[in-house]
């Protein structure tokens, strides 16, 4: 036993590139898998949701107008930062109940998943877009465009699940407001520290911790949110959330059964795209 006093970490929210406490001043206790005290996490309120959506909207213009190549570079840089924190993530996953080997494997899978999505940044346009044959003297192109601010209710897989829902949303130029896993939010906040120390502009990803059932309805009903991913929403709440989301015709991604270690496919990326079609006269 050393004589040092432990330096306890204060886990806060991640909004607009900064780490504020919840506006409400509330927090909740996070326990490890054996029920022992681990940390206090912020318990965000609806006003934090509002602030986060505001920050995401503000960041959207800049992030979406970057070149896909540049977005890919920034995402890859995040993977580098993740790699540097492998040990920390492994410890946090073990505290959340994973065995040592399983924790290491999950961290590796999460980093690989992130790199995989980073590679899609400058390929998505070619795969999801098209040059269309039309009956007239026009070139006709369809190109995928980001849809805007995406609300994400993250699943309980604390790192791999989180990475698998955040990366596909932002890779195409969307910005995101993420409600982290309720029982194990700590890897999400550590992940936010990774984002803050990479080149990702503030506000592109905003992370809230707290009661999912309390925050998700505000996110689903917010008129300035363009799409919502219900991956981690409670089953009983999904229907109500979809109804709230219908008010401004949000794109809704319903929870899909399956394991986060499965091949992801491109669905999560294409779910948050809009298609822009341009008619250009031939010979002008």
């Amino acid at each position: 036993m050393s004589d040092r006093l432990a330096v306890r970490k204060t886990y806060k929210l991640f909004i607009g590139g900064a780490f504020p406490r919840s506006e409400s001043g509330r927090s909740y206790v996070v326990n490890d898998a054996r029920g022992r005290f681990l940390a206090n996490a912020s318990r965000a309120s609806r006003k934090d949701v509002r602030d986060a959506v505001g920050a995401a909207r503000k960041a959207f213009g800049g992030w979406s107008s970057r070149t896909p190549y540049n977005r890919g570079q920034i995402l890859y840089r995040i993977a580098e930062m993740l790699e540097g924190r492998r040990a920390q993530f492994t410890d946090e996953l073990r505290a959340a109940g994973l065995a040592k080997n399983a924790a290491t494997a999950e961290v590796d899978a999460a980093i690989d998943r992130w790199v995989w999505y980073a590679g899609w940044a400058d390929k998505l346009g070619a795969v999801a877009g098209s040059a269309n044959p039309v009956a007239g003297p026009f070139f006709n192109f369809s190109t995928p465009e980001p849809t805007g601010v995406v609300g994400i209710v993250a699943p309980d897989s604390p790192l791999l699940g989180l990475v698998s829902v955040v990366a596909p949303a932002i890779v195409s130029g969307n910005t995101a407001v993420v409600v982290a896993s309720e029982p194990s939010p700590l890897p999400a906040i550590t992940f936010a520290e990774v984002l803050a120390t990479s080149d990702l502009p503030g506000g592109v990803v905003n992370l809230l911790t707290g009661r999912r059932a309390e925050l998700a309805p505000w996110l689903a009903s917010h008129m300035d949110v363009n799409a919502i991913d219900l991956a981690g929403a409670e089953e009983a709440q999904v229907k109500a959330l979809e109804e709230a989301a219908a008010d401004n015709l949000k794109r809704v991604l319903r929870p899909v059964p399956g394991d986060w270690s499965d091949e992801p496919g491109t669905e999560r990326m294409t779910a948050f795209l809009e298609t822009k079609t341009v008619w250009h006269p031939v010979g002008v």
Partner: peptide, 9 residues
């Protein structure tokens, strides 16, 4: 309305 609005409107 009880829900947050946005500048688009």
């Amino acid at each position: 309305t009880g829900v947050y609005s946005g500048p688009d409107y």
